[in-house]
Design a protein around this nucleic acid. Structure first.
Lengths: 241, 241
DNA sequence: CACAATTTGTCCGTATGTATG
DNA sequence: CCATACATACGGACAAATTGT
């Protein structure tokens, strides 16, 4: 009972997801696990996996003895912060056309706080530093500083084609990102950031300080991302412990 | 095989959690599911449930074919934003003594945006409004505005003992909060907030706009919380989709 | 108030698939 | 090719919560 390159429970997730978006309203009850199991021809456990996934994504919640209900559909939930997405996809998700400006990069010695996060203390501590401004419909909306543990010749590989997707660039060096540990802060624009983002007055920025890890648990990227808060909305479902 | 009032997999979770905090360093490998299954005398499925829970809490990550590793221990991870906690607990978690100042409350007509979130359009749309400043070691750190669908006589029940825990107050009215849908923004302090939080200069604030739901999926509380960002750190583990 | 029906939650066992070294 | 470890999938059984009779 094995199909496609997408596991059964993810196929079930997709079907339930479509059901939510096409036929159900927020707070409406979805069919029972038993019914879905029969309807989709998979075991109840597989359905539970699918529902669990949609719960984590913030679309559903379950109540023992009662049922499983829709929290929000595709359109009601914007950017879920627990899902690690490229700025490109985040900009797209908010309905804009993404672009890139003012790219600057160089090989440099890692600042102390960055070296610490990337475990570069012993070795020379060199990083490939990249600075970018991302735009939405040509308006600057995000300023990002990336620090990547330096690999010889890396700077020559970084070409215009990679401006838009750092993730693809990192893949080339066997640094596939799996997850990030993210600290969320609010800051007020200083002169540097105001200039980068072409701000006329002081603005509130959402700062995501992130250490990204490969699927081996090795830190492969540290980044500070400054999002213009009036243009962006991050969401999260918080559950009582 | 049923004990206590805490399910087996949660007991297993607790034991693995202790193992992490007492014996293991970040990025270290924990024993295999098989070993843990034998050691704790439960099925591998139950161990997987426990590990899954700790993954969601941001303490572990697993890699197929390799093992499961520690991301951070209790002390390295501060406030995980995906866990819904009272301000009281958040302040405690950051190492301060919590307090409350400037409590103001009244029954009022719900502002439009609030009424919409609480589905109060039809009925008169009255809410019990509460304004509080929370302190950490007597320094103001959070300003909160709460809106609760009004129940007759509610304002007379709201006494000093509930200043610290709105959750307990809501329990009294059968409005037990189960989860919240939270939108994260950054804002600059305006005159009102500056006065409430006794700020001398413009400050960056982390704004959590939250609609809280009971375990029946009924919205029972809308709140705007303004956290002084230099005092607080919210964390989240973001995983690639 | 008691009881049954429904629905999700927990737990077990087993088997096979997939990734890594 | 093999051993190890996690991932997926099936099946069954009973527990716990809620709702209706």
């Amino acid at each position: 009972m094995k199909l496609a390159n997408r596991s059964l429970y993810l196929q079930a997730r997709d079907m339930i997801f479509d059901l939510i978006n096409d036929n159900l309203e927020p707070m409406e009850k979805i069919p029972s696990e038993q019914k879905l199991s029969e309807k989709l021809g998979v075991s109840r456990n597989t359905i539970r996996e699918a529902i669990r996934t949609l719960e984590q994504e913030g679309f559903l919640f379950s109540k023992q003895g009662v049922g499983t209900f829709v929290i929000g559909s595709k359109n009601s939930l914007k950017t879920n912060i627990t899902t690690l997405e490229s700025s490109t996809n985040i900009i797209k998700a908010q309905g804009y056309i993404p672009g890139t400006m003012n790219v600057f990069s160089e090989v440099q010695t890692a600042p102390h706080r960055v070296g610490k996060q990337l475990s570069l203390e012993e070795k020379g501590g060199e990083v490939f530093y990249i600075e970018r401004v991302r735009t939405a419909d040509t308006t600057p909306v995000v300023y990002v500083e990336d620090y990547i543990p330096y690999v010889n010749g890396m700077e020559h590989e970084y070409e215009e084609q990679y401006y838009e997707s750092l993730l693809k660039f990192l893949d080339k060096f066997g640094m596939e990102i799996s997850f990030s540990v993210c600290s969320i802060k609010a800051v007020i624009s200083d002169d540097k950031i105001a200039s980068k983002l072409q701000l006329k007055e002081q603005s509130a920025l959402l700062l995501l300080k992130q250490t990204h890890y490969s699927n081996n648990g090795v830190p492969v990227l540290y980044s500070d991302s400054f999002y213009l808060s009036d243009k962006f909305e991050f969401n999260v479902i918080r559950k009582r412990g």
